[in-house]
Design a protein around this nucleic acid. Sequence first.
DNA 1: GCGTAACATGTTACCGGTAACATACATGAT
DNA 2: ATCATGTATGTTACCGGTAACATGTTACGC
Lengths: 384, 384
Amino acid sequence: MLPVTYMMKHSHSPHEGRPATMEDLARATGLSKMTISRALNTSGYVSEQSRKKVIAAARQFNYRLNYIGRNLNQNRTGMLGIITPLEGLIGTYYFGQIVKGIQSALIGTDYHIAHYDSLSADFNDGEKCAQLCYQKRVDGLIVIAPKRHDCFVKTFAELKVPLVVVGGAPRDPRTSFIDVDNFGGASSAAEHLIDLGHYKIGFVAGPKTLHDACEREMAFRKTLARHSLRVNEKWVIQGSYETRKAFHASLHLLSQRDRPTAIFASNDLMALGVLDAARIIGLSVPEELSIAGFDDIDAATNVQPQLTTVRQPMQRMGRKAVEYIMELVAKGNQERHLIHQKLTAQLIIRESTAQARKTTQTTGQARGVDKVPFSHFVTGTSGL
Amino acid sequence: MLPVTYMMKHSHSPHEGRPATMEDLARATGLSKMTISRALNTSGYVSEQSRKKVIAAARQFNYRLNYIGRNLNQNRTGMLGIITPLEGLIGTYYFGQIVKGIQSALIGTDYHIAHYDSLSADFNDGEKCAQLCYQKRVDGLIVIAPKRHDCFVKTFAELKVPLVVVGGAPRDPRTSFIDVDNFGGASSAAEHLIDLGHYKIGFVAGPKTLHDACEREMAFRKTLARHSLRVNEKWVIQGSYETRKAFHASLHLLSQRDRPTAIFASNDLMALGVLDAARIIGLSVPEELSIAGFDDIDAATNVQPQLTTVRQPMQRMGRKAVEYIMELVAKGNQERHLIHQKLTAQLIIRESTAQARKTTQTTGQARGVDKVPFSHFVTGTSGL
DNA sequence: GCGTAACATGTTACCGGTAACATACATGAT
DNA sequence: ATCATGTATGTTACCGGTAACATGTTACGC
């Protein structure tokens, strides 16, 4: 053991400043480059003695595997491209969780994430798409952009890069996607409210530009229809997936003489806005107003009362996406193995929904409503 | 011209499925690989005729430069690592804008962005840091993590990867950082309120764990002190940089008999919460309450009244970071060229701040305050 | 004692580009 | 005519790994 250390100290070490290569280790240990490779990758046969020598030398020279070299002949980059909007006003939590799922699926692999902004102008240009992602920079692509992705998704598909869209199903059926079953989830939430005896049910819609928001609204309407309930359009608020706008609009809605006894918001952030509004108005939740959301964000369990909501398996969507891409990468993306997957969304019943009161027929105004200086937020709504 | 095309069609093309290489183009055009390289990179001498031949062949074979090959002998990856908290990157204005600045600075270069989660457990392990980023995968690192980065920043510094921290100055003076002058910016906002004649000034603090939040609070306190004004601790709200918590806390604060005539919130999101609270309470802004924020987010100009705020040059911070890294990369990161840069934050005076009313000495309660069913949100605050 | 299999290591070629140097021809100045 | 210079192209080597194949050694069963 001692002579080995001695030898290495005196063998010519890599030039200062230049990182050590396998070649350097080979010279230092007196072994061949190939044995070094085998020792460090624990592949093939290497004697215990040689392995120790190599490890010691690697440590001494602070050797790090150079992926570029490896990748060049394995013809892959170990980079997975993910495309998201950089400043999606919509659901930080949503994107974060999906990417978290992706990251968790990448643990143990040698894949890294290259990030691209879906709103970047570059993606409008097909050639740029290719230049950005196809030149062996990424082995696969995961698109998590709820809007404006059809154009470049198509381009990438033509370039035959393994690609999957997460959330917000694209129109083009030749593209693989993984999404949550928005329709089923929203249906079960609406069903739940109806089961509780509610028939005056309001709805807070998400942006019309988003596919999932439309699916949820559709589900809401169809479920009510299936139970022969009419949707009162006065109780349908057009929201933007944000808390504040939903809050202000709910203030208005809930202070009406004729108001719903339950509200289904198409995401949790807006449900929180409704909850805040109810509190200000003086309506107790769930006694006087049931509220259901969608997503099951952290905050849903951090409010009083805890929010009944539909859980989206966001992390699982991310993991699924990785699995799919990996499969394609492994197969060399040969066959056109498309998937159109809709993961089920689970209704989580908590404290914000309750049996509809038979007695409270919402004939009178809510407690405290007439005392609120109402003109302020009614006239001010436009600016929000 | 015609014979050239003819020739190419009959020359052996790359195998199906395998992307074309320069070798393929060389065979197809009858030129050498080197000439192909020169033609496509417009470097060195290439005759117009040859160039045209090459371009045509490249188009025909749908040739794309393989970066791995190039990178291998240029010993760089063209990847810039950015480290942010995952849930911050997408959706949060602050991170989004900084990354946007970074992206814009990368246009025209052949650099791409590799993203890493600052909250990943991997970064607690020095060896993992190296494995993740140092193995020739990134040429430089930009850290935009407001907390918990000291540990791994130090590790990367030791690995001699060009690195810069954006925002949230680290404690270790041997690390380069680019930040906004939080102290100066917050001071000018406080100064502005004082200039308007306010002396009863409230403050909405950000998370104590964040460096910038502390700087802003410090600036607020020092500025008041410099003007011989006492800070009333009852008017200091501990916020979390979020709208909702600030909203609920403000409701409480503003309905007190003895309340401030101006509030400085340490970010815009919280200023919006204060604005909403004022609206509910029935205080008109800016007549009865001046509100100033920090950041100048989009929403600041989308509310009524438009928010007076301190603008952070987020995109510029991103661009500066790239410039710095590029400089280091070009120099091979040889010398320890540290920068500690504080970009100035600009006070933007809009509509939410006004001269303090001499008459309104806040002796009486605000209009409508006693009419709000107060018990509801006071008791409920804990859950928010 | 010999053949076979498992073990241990080395050699060669190659991944897809590019730097460095070499070659060849044209042009224009001396 | 000669030489320096500019232009156009080719050759070779190399970046840092790994696959594929070759070689040599040891161990074990028959």
